[in-house]
Amino acid sequence: MSNAAPENFHDRIVPPSGAPAWLTTFTAGAMTFLAVFALALSLASDRLATRWAEALNRTATIRISAPDDQMALQTKAVLSLLAETPGIAAARALTGEETRALLEPWFGPDLPLTDLPLPQLVELTEAPEGYDGEGLRQRLAAEAPGAVLDDHLRWRRPLAQAASTLRLLGLGAIGLIGLAMAAMITLAASAALAANAQVIKVLRLVGATDSYIARAFTRRFTMRAATGAAVGALVGAAGVFALPAQDAAGGFLTGLGFTGWGWLLPLAFIPLAALVAFVATQLAALRTLRGLT
């Protein structure tokens, strides 16, 4: 015995066209597009914070400023002191070439090093158990008065905090985008429910329950949101892909992308947008229906 009801009948109970439909698809697409960029920003901030932490966490620099005739003596004293200090894995004095390389980006390749009173730099690597920074400072002051310990902590901490804050801002932006999308879809669903008062009246007349009617609207809006989100996610991912490749000179902005499996993350916004639309429409529909006889 064949069934006269087409398989997708329940999806067609709500008329297909109208501004709310377009608004839902557009909103889901635009919000997902923005969410992809917010996610890229958040992930890039996370990578940056990790990179800075790894690069700076285990190194420190000692800068020795002393008259020419004492420079070698104080350098030797510093290296000797570092060799005896617990928690320091390695220490070495930078050569003139290395110092020139460090300064070259600011002063150019023709820097006359011999004419400048440059300090001697000593790079130390921290052992896993760590060293006592304050104790080292005091011993340096006693044995090499021209030596100053710079353990990067005072500028590493705000940088790490900034990166962490950026990551949180990115996640917060995604949350706000989700809420804004829920609000827009709620408005669109409410408008659709108002525009389809006659449909609801007929369905109630023939014995449809509130949950059945709500499902009819929810199915439509969920599908529309998923469709819009799919387009938004793909366009957003393409936009991120089009950004310049990561480059040291480019700094943070050129690192604003996904890596490896991370390129699949924008696809997660499709079911998320569908879920937001489902919940928003279901709540709007049940609220509207409760107001009817």
Binding site: M1, S2, N3, A5, L203, G207, T209
Partner: peptide
């Protein structure tokens, strides 16, 4: 709407 079959 009541989930009953609709024999053609």
């Amino acid at each position: 709407v009541s989930g009953r079959p609709t024999p053609a």
